[in-house]
């Protein structure tokens, strides 16, 4: 008998311009040169390491953030994407992240922080971000931060792999 496919639902959020849609498309092997700001949401279903990943990417502009809550349900993994070169908005970024983590419906989700745009000069490093975003305060979720570049594709796989293995050990161990 064919084993039931293991499905994982991943929600990708972050401030506007962080690179969410670019990450999604790059990961899916699509062209990343014609991406405009997301006004609604994107979904991609990818097969990876025997899992079926349902990835949801919702627009991050301030006026759109109130819609995020409509996509919390059943989320196994939350990817928080940060523009590590946008130092001006890191405070805002930290505030939005910590509000999200209080959400009841996200309480069972593993958190991956993508420190994106590492290829840009002046991008913060992981230690700085960990500090500015107060990541060590997070006790409610399994979390991990990794730098990446959606443009070059560096570290995208490593990040996703960490996320999947954390989720898999949490929810599929009974199989």
């Amino acid at each position: 008998m064919k084993q039931k496919e293991k499905e994982i639902r991943i929600l990708m959020l972050g401030l506007d311009n962080a690179g969410k849609t670019t990450i999604l498309k790059k990961f899916n092997g699509e062209d990343i040169n014609t991406i405009s700001p997301t006004l609604g949401f994107n979904i991609k279903t990818l097969e990876h390491r025997g899992f079926k990943l349902n990835m949801w990417d919702v627009g991050g502009q301030k006026s759109l953030r109130s819609y995020w809550r409509n996509y919390f349900e059943c989320t196994d993994g939350l990817i928080w994407v940060v523009d590590s070169a946008d130092k001006r908005r890191l405070k805002d970024c930290k505030a939005e992240l910590h509000i999200l983590l209080q959400e009841e419906r996200l309480s069972g989700a593993t958190l991956l922080v993508f420190a994106n745009k590492r290829d840009l000069p002046g991008a913060c490093n992981i230690e700085e971000l960990r500090d500015i975003l107060d990541l060590d305060e997070i006790k409610s979720h399994h979390w991990h931060i990794i730098w990446c570049s959606a443009v070059t594709g560096e570290n995208l796989l490593q990040g996703i792999d960490w996320l999947i293995s954390d989720i898999a050990t949490r929810i599929f161990t009974l199989d």
Binding site: T38, L39, G40, F41, N42, I43, L64, Y67, N70, Y71
Partner: peptide, 9 residues
């Protein structure tokens, strides 16, 4: 279009 509008939800 590939992108979805919130109203679809």
């Amino acid at each position: 279009s590939e992108e979805n509008k919130f109203i679809y939800t």
